[in-house]
Amino acid sequence: MDEARAPRRGVSPRLWLAGGWLLLALLAAIFAPLVAPQDPLAQDLMLERLPPFWMSGAEPGYWLGTDSLGRDLLSRLIFGGRIAFVVAFAAAIAACVVGSTLGLISGYFGGWADRIISRIVDVWMAFPPVLFAILLVAVLGTGLSSVIIAIAVIDWTRFCRVIRAETMGQSRMDYVENARIAGYGRIGIMLREVLPNVVPSIVALLSLEMGIAVIVEAILSFVNLSISTDDPTWGGIIAEGRLSIHQAWWVLVFPLITLILTVLSFSQFGEALKTRFDPVLR
């Protein structure tokens, strides 16, 4: 029975690595108060600019050193991850829902719906995204929800474009015509026949978008437009680290590494998921 099936590909190392890092970071963020070795906000000027654990002069309990106010870097990174993940999930899902819906409608129905939606996307994409985000947050006021809304409002076009193209390709397939001959309604065909075939792309984009949301959030906190300056964010830590790069390079380098690993993992994870979700590649 099963031998006729295409052999299932094992989970690739890339999925393991990316998924592993994301899981680790996510768990650390969720259980931040339990895993963080120090209070991320506690300042102690006696302990300022402690180096990471392998260098001389390091204090036990401050694994990655401290910043210029004596706050523990590792704890700040862990707590910063909370905001990064909340923004990543909320903003990416919001952008995905809006963009995919419009893309599906645009690609499947064509005609006027397509013309209107595509023109809006064109105009939208003409704005430089980061400038647009800064503008939006400036108007909406800083805060977590503003950041999420800003990212969703900017990046839905990415989903819309890709899903529209995918849907157009699928809609030309004979199975869609067959469903029309059988007498299915247009919306039924769109949701039951076409949508399952674009899901792999949606999943890949969603994961990629989470990575992008993490970056945009970091950029906004870097320019101090994200949430209140008290809460540690990756972008905020990078901004502070930049000022003391000659005295304490670790304050800049560790959040950068965290950011890069997370963004890379999201995009790799998305690619790997796409292959697994695709019935033809599976």
């Binding site: 397939m173 004979d174 199975y175 015509e177 067959n178 029309r180 001959i181 059988a182 007498g183 026949e193 399952p196 075939n197 899901v199 019935p279 033809v280």
Partner: peptide, 24 residues
């Protein structure tokens, strides 16, 4: 018209590759 066509006719298509939904 759709209902009538759906109930009384059917198509055997040219290309069996694309005539079946790949994800179902």
């Amino acid at each position: 018209r759709r209902t009538l066509i759906g109930a009384r006719t059917a198509l055997i298509p040219q290309d069996p590759l694309t005539a079946l939904n790949p994800s179902r």
